[in-house]
């Protein structure tokens, strides 16, 4: 998929663990793991908003478009 999820990069920048984000955002670890691995088919605006609030970043910091060759 040409959409790359940079959640692990943002987590590293904020020095936050996935479990901590899971607790603060209110999303299960399994769902966050799916998102982090780039296996998610879609992301809700509410989820994106919650993650951006906790990580203090913009949606563009988490999601990136890369054209497939």
């Amino acid at each position: 998929m040409p959409i790359i999820v940079n959640l692990d990069v943002m987590l590293a920048k904020r020095k936050m663990l996935l479990t901590e984000l899971s607790e603060k955002v209110g999303i299960t670890m399994s769902n966050l793991s799916i998102l982090k691995k780039g296996k998610a088919k879609a992301i809700r605006f509410s989820t994106l908003q919650a993650i951006c609030e906790v990580l203090e970043c913009q949606p563009g910091d988490i999601l990136e478009y890369s054209a497939e060759e």
């Binding site: 999303i27 769902n31 799916i34 989820t47």
Partner: peptide
Amino acid sequence: KKENELTI
């Protein structure tokens, strides 16, 4: 259903 399950 699969798509819905993979919507976070």
